[in-house]
């Protein structure tokens, strides 16, 4: 397969997943804003989420105050920073368009009509009033895209590169979700300040993990159990363990002459998670672990680009 085609497939999937991740993050806060809550704690949560996404400075370049409506607008349709949810949907579609011949027509049409509709919705200028519905719609379109990908694409290289993009991005999103709650994840946090149980159940719902949590733990929601679910639970489709397993598996399927080191690093990342327990991670410090994980994931993405997507020119 052309390296450029693989590149577009990889980024197409990353952008779809990123849009979904943003939608889930916004959804969580939108749900929180409906709770009988102190506005200060909602603002604090938004602040730390922006920080976890490395968007604090960008946001403050546009707005002084953290305010739910402004943050939602910034993340969904905000102009001038290029990473809004709408931008992600456009980028997904532009990457797909560049390789539409490689995609099944169903997949291309799904991405194309998602973008066309998103553009119409954005043009209506009602995002403030329609935030809940909109992020719900984004999630549905993401589910549809994933279903069409899995249901129609040949299991060849194209599929594997698309999946590598999906899982690298999803691992990134899950890790940042936890980074945003780092204060609740300090050692002994459970004993000290009591985190708001409603807030955490809202978070779980936004990650489609509420029922999963109940089934698995049958106990009150605690931040450390949530962390365990999102990091180490192999059955949980959004957990870091699950995502890194998929990255590794798909990388092996496309291995070439120069990719063995990348494969080793991906396998290393996965096995670290596979052979650890939450207690050891807490001992090392969860926040530190998450930072290191994000750095290693980023490096892995860079390696994938060099090995497969942008091979150096040899003339």
């Amino acid at each position: 397969m052309l390296s450029r085609t693989a590149d577009h497939l990889y980024w197409m999937s990353r952008y779809v997943e990123r849009a979904e991740g943003l939608a889930r993050m916004i959804d969580a806060h939108h749900r929180m804003s409906l709770l009988p809550h102190a506005p200060a704690s909602l603002r604090a949560s938004l602040q730390s989420s922006l920080a976890a996404l490395d968007l604090e400075n960008l946001y403050h370049a546009h707005h002084e105050r953290i305010e739910a409506r402004l943050v939602f607008e910034f993340l969904i349709v905000g102009q001038g920073w290029g990473g809004s949810l709408i931008d992600c949907l456009r980028s997904a579609r532009e990457n797909a368009r560049a390789i539409r011949g490689t995609l099944t027509s169903e997949l291309w049409e799904t991405l194309n009509s998602t973008w066309l509709e998103a553009r119409t919705i954005a043009a209506r200028g009602q995002i403030g009033a329609e935030t809940g519905q909109f992020v719900e719609w984004v999630k549905e379109r993401s589910h549809l895209t994933r279903g069409v990908t899995i249901g129609t694409m040949l299991r060849d290289e194209a599929f594997h590169f698309s999946r590598i993009g999906t899982f690298i991005e999803r691992a990134d999103n899950s890790a940042r979700f936890l980074v945003a709650r780092r204060d609740d994840l300090q050692p002994g946090a459970d004993a000290g300040r009591v985190p708001d149980p409603f807030e955490w159940s809202v978070l779980l719902r936004a990650l489609s993990a509420f029922e999963v949590y109940r089934r698995r733990y049958r106990e009150v929601i605690t931040p450390l159990r949530v962390a365990e679910l999102l990091i180490l639970c192999d059955d949980m489709p959004r957990s870091l363990l699950r995502c890194t397993r998929e990255v590794y598996r798909n990388l092996r399927a496309v291995a070439n002459d120069q990719s063995s080191e990348t494969e080793r690093r991906a396998g290393g990342l996965h096995s670290t998670l596979h052979f650890t327990r939450l207690e050891s991670l807490i001992e090392r410090g969860l926040a530190r672990f998450l930072e290191e994980f994000l750095a290693e994931l980023y490096a892995l993405g860079e390696r994938v680009a060099v090995d497969f997507l942008l091979p150096p020119i040899e003339v």
Binding site: L2, S3, R4, R100, G101, E157, D257, F308, I313, V315
Partner: peptide, 28 residues
């Protein structure tokens, strides 16, 4: 390209070495 089952390439996907034209693929 899709109907013929051939690669759709851009200039950046091709290079020339020893008077032969190559495309850059994920397998070299």
């Amino acid at each position: 390209a899709q109907q013929m089952g051939i690669e759709l390439v851009e200039g950046q996907d091709l290079f020339v070495r020893d008077d032969l034209v190559y495309m850059r693929t994920t397998r070299g």
